[in-house]
């Protein structure tokens, strides 16, 4: 056993040397911070292509502005984001950019940032709080309008009558809530459009497929439309529809949100009818806001900036597919 305890001691020593070495490197960066502003970016995770494009956009924009960007991601868990947030507050960065996973539960962490005088920019997804002074500005995709646009397109396509199956995103996430509400607020005016089932596919391909399989068994040919809160779930649903011996986009109309590259592939293949763009290239806007905050012009920023999104239909897909980077 002695051999192992020696090994263990050795690894402890190695760790003890390596870890401070890493952190001291960062510490020197921070002292230079007088010149280079240090921006912290707390991302939700790296779970899909859209998210990676979003991360890349922020990193690129920060580099263009010459900022030192500290990056952390929550691996799809709020607790990880909270930890990263408080660690950045303790490091005393200049500005924090937060892309929250869920809407609620941020007050304490943001309160701490406020006490330390660190301004916070909320990016992509919205947060819910009673105290709006906790963040400087919100920049994001207008997920509510995306839901509305999907519903408007559908109302036009089906002339106002359809039986819809909805694949929701993660329960509690703001895109889920907004795409849920936006869609419903529009179809309220179209009594012929009816949502016959609504289940969470957790924004995941495999879950979208699994849920769609189950719904096809229950409702069968009754289903006329699938409305998916993101492209990944729509792609999962397409494969479930094919397994059921039906033709996606013909027997069942499919509309989704995000407009990632894979969705364009599906549209070109004639399997997806429409996708509402949710533009992930939010980095430049976010860094412009950061620049204004650093210049002391935070008051000139709107509390809310929404990015205008486009609707892409199957027929247009061929013309746009080559320009899609993500």
């Amino acid at each position: 056993m002695n051999r192992y305890s020696k090994l263990a001691a050795l690894s402890v020593v190695v760790l003890a040397v390596v870890i401070p070495a890493c952190s001291s490197e960062k510490a020197t960066d921070a002292t230079d911070g007088n010149k280079t502003p240090v921006i912290a970016f707390v991302q939700t995770g790296a779970d899909n292509d859209w998210r990676n494009a979003h991360t890349e956009s922020v990193k690129q924009a920060a580099a263009d502005h010459g900022y030192d960007l500290r990056f952390a991601e929550g691996q799809s868990k709020q607790e990880n984001q909270l930890k990263a947030l408080s660690s950045f507050v303790n490091q005393g960065v200049d500005v924090i950019v937060l892309a929250p996973i869920v809407e609620t539960g941020w007050d304490n962490a943001l309160e701490k940032a406020k006490q330390r005088g660190i301004p916070v920019v909320i990016l992509d997804r919205q947060i819910k709080t009673d105290d709006e002074s906790l963040y400087v500005t919100y920049i994001g995709a207008d997920t509510y309008t995306e839901g509305q646009k999907a519903a408007q397109w559908l109302a036009g396509k089906t002339e106002g009558t359809a039986k819809v199956v909805e694949l929701q995103g993660n329960p509690g996430a703001s895109p889920t809530i907004n795409r849920f509400n936006g869609f419903r607020d529009v179809i309220e005016d179209h009594p012929g459009i009816e949502i016959i089932a609504s289940q969470s596919g957790e924004f995941r391909r495999s879950k979208g497929k699994e849920v769609m399989e189950a719904l096809l068994k229950k409702h069968g040919k009754e289903i006329e439309v699938v409305y998916a809160h993101n492209d990944d779930m729509a792609i999962g649903a397409i494969s479930a529809i094919e397994d059921a011996g039906l033709k996606p986009a013909e027997d069942i109309i499919i509309v989704s949100v995000d407009a990632v590259r894979a969705a364009f592939d599906a549209m070109v293949a004639g399997k997806l009818n429409c996708t509402v763009e949710c533009n992930p290239l939010q980095g430049p806007l976010a860094m412009e806001a950061v620049a204004k905050i650093l210049a002391g012009e935070a008051d000139s920023l709107d509390k809310k900036t929404l990015i205008e999104d486009t609707v892409f239909e199957m027929e247009q897909a061929k013309d746009f597919i080559d320009s899609r980077k993500y």
Binding site: E210, A214, L215
Partner: peptide, 14 residues
């Protein structure tokens, strides 16, 4: 799990 999907249980109470 499949029962919950087919029965149409709301995802937040599943």
């Amino acid at each position: 799990l499949t029962t919950l999907y087919t029965f149409g249980f709301a995802s937040d109470t599943a």
